[in-house]
Write a protein that binds this DNA or RNA. Structure first.
Lengths: 347, 347
DNA sequence: TTGTATGCGTTATCAA
DNA sequence: TTGATAACGCATACAA
């Protein structure tokens, strides 16, 4: 009563209100919603009319309390999307939310200072019933989170995986090896033979796979000799890429094409080429990774991750019965060709 | 019992468990948490020990049911962040989540096909008690959402505002006029006199303000004659900016500097300059808007929105008592100077 | 097919 | 200061 007056608006109608309106018991209303076959069609219609008339919506807190399931999926959002998700984080988040919607689940966003705090928060959210399950992303080598959550019996699915404990938890990932591999295939088909790679230092799960894809494809095409020494590593920054590219282009036999581990690096490669007076796409072919907005702006070819599919698979795995064996999923990326890799090698 | 066995793990401890462990009543435990002054220090300690020992966390569903407040803030996430939030959406979302955390509130993400569906979803979420309040962003002229939510008595705060009904709801916004105005000031101080503007067509709340900032500053500096006809508009795309810039640079007296309404447009301006053989920062100065990652990559000067502050203010307004008069907030942006506007005009 | 009783975990009211 | 009881809205087992 008091609340009703304070808020200046009627409280939401409850199951009991609907029952009263329809002249039936609460249980009958509940049955109409959850087991319609148990209710006489006429009654059913009457109840449904009452529901519409009153604008009734089941109270999720009450449902959650009763079922001990909040239908909320926890997701930690980082200050600036890190490494592999930079530039496509938006798409991922939206795809998760969209996939969740179809199953009447919502995303619960939370923040944490670091991975330890992230795990702590997840445990607290789970124990307090605020979230039923979690999505982890940016899985690194020896990531402490999967085992921490597993130990507490907290359901989760990871976007990304570490080869070491790939079987220990459920994950969805994009086939990064196939990505850079396809980039090399593409460049080879354009006539390139000296194809360089600019990527992250060894030791990161994603970076290592992207490097491996480049190497394996180069070898498969029998270009290992041509590409010897054309594999440089550094931090994921424009500046680092500029320096690495300068080194590559300064060689006696410089590469005619460069595959970059990220679009940020690709942007640096392009910048370095321009500074040297080379025209991107004619004098030097470039392929980036992630198909970020920046790649589109710079007209850089790039490997596009099927993020929307990742989101769907993550949610599907999350809502699948936990007893089933982990069905992990590796999704193929797609090469988006733009002008930066359109032409044949000029020398 | 059954659930306990199925899940293979103990249910979270409840208030009753803590009470039993500490040898007190449930109410006493509740008092320790909410009104510690009512409890004898010794009892208090005993209860706190039991809480820690059992790893007790209050059940949020039960709290929500009892208090009819979910401590959830609804936020619609769009497929690709639109217009004004492109490139900085991540930062905004994180700042909201972070600001909410300090008040023990979380973000609930939902999706919707369009604005009508967005409003419908918000109403449903509110009525079902899933969210207490909402954040709206990308407010346009004649935005239907504020009035729709207001009409239903649903609390919300907007990021952005429409001048027409600026007093009708609570909002937080960045001073876009001040942004482009500062950009012009900066360019004038570098010696530029013919300063162009490339922006969105008239009719958008944000775009109009950015254009107005440019114009007012140009006039204030007495450069209206120099800048006559240097104000072009088109869609927010690289291609459009290229075309507009080509037109500007093709004039008998081309501008020596261009302020762009967004970083995307600024990227197009830069591209067009390069195609014409001009060096950005030397032959043509450019200032973008939003300080997106793309601007950083291209070394474009840009107006940076204080998104973290916006998030804080939005949450603060949301959690402030609804009866207080709307205190709207206009935050100043900040010019980030990079090489694209470093030099003086060359001609 | 429909109605009754009970419990989910918490907080507020009231007695002791 | 502490403890018993009711209520929040829903869903389930059970009885009619």
């Amino acid at each position: 009563m008091v609340r009703r007056q304070l808020a200046q608006l009627p409280d939401s109608p409850t199951l009991a209100d609907v029952a009263r309106e329809a002249g039936v018991s609460r249980q009958t209303v509940s049955n109409v919603l959850h087991a319609p076959h148990k209710v006489k069609p006429a009654t059913q219609r009457r109840v449904e009319q009452a529901i519409v008339m009153l604008g009734y919506h089941p109270n999720r807190s009450a449902q959650a309390l009763q079922s001990s399931s909040s239908r909320m999926i926890g997701y930690r959002i980082e200050p600036q999307s890190s490494g592999t998700l930079a530039g496509i984080h938006d798409r991922f988040l939206h795809s998760l939310a969209e996939a969740g919607r179809t199953a009447d689940h919502h995303l619960l966003l939370y923040t944490a200072a670091d991975r330890a705090a992230e795990t702590d928060s997840a445990i607290r959210l789970f124990r307090s019933g605020a979230a039923d399950a979690f999505v982890l992303y940016d899985i690194t080598v020896d990531d402490p989170r999967p085992s921490a959550l597993h130990e507490k019996g907290i359901p989760f699915v990871a976007f990304g995986h570490d080869d070491c404990d790939a079987g220990a938890y459920r994950w969805v990932d994009v086939d990064n090896v196939a990505g850079t591999s396809a980039a090399v295939d593409h460049l080879v088909s354009r006539g390139h033979r000296r194809i360089g790679f600019v990527g992250w230092p060894d030791g990161s799960a994603v970076g290592d796979r992207r490097a491996r894809g480049w190497r394996s494809s180069v070898e498969r095409h029998g270009l290992a000799d041509f590409c010897h020494g054309l594999d440089l590593r550094g931090p994921d920054s424009v500046q680092a890429a500029i320096e690495m590219t300068a080194a590559l282009l300064g060689r006696p036999e410089p590469p005619t094409a460069i595959v970059a581990g990220t679009d940020t690096l690709a942007a640096g490669v392009a910048r370095a080429a321009l500074r040297r007076g080379l025209e991107v796409g004619r004098d030097l072919a470039i392929v980036g990774f992630d198909d970020t907005p920046t790649a589109a702006v710079l007209e850089l070819s790039s490997i596009r991750q099927p993020i929307e599919d990742v989101g769907r698979h993550v949610i599907a795995a999350l809502l699948a019965p936990g007893s089933a064996p982990p069905r992990n999923t590796l999704l193929p990326p797609q090469l988006v060709i733009r002008s930066s890799s359109a032409g044949p090698p000029s020398r």
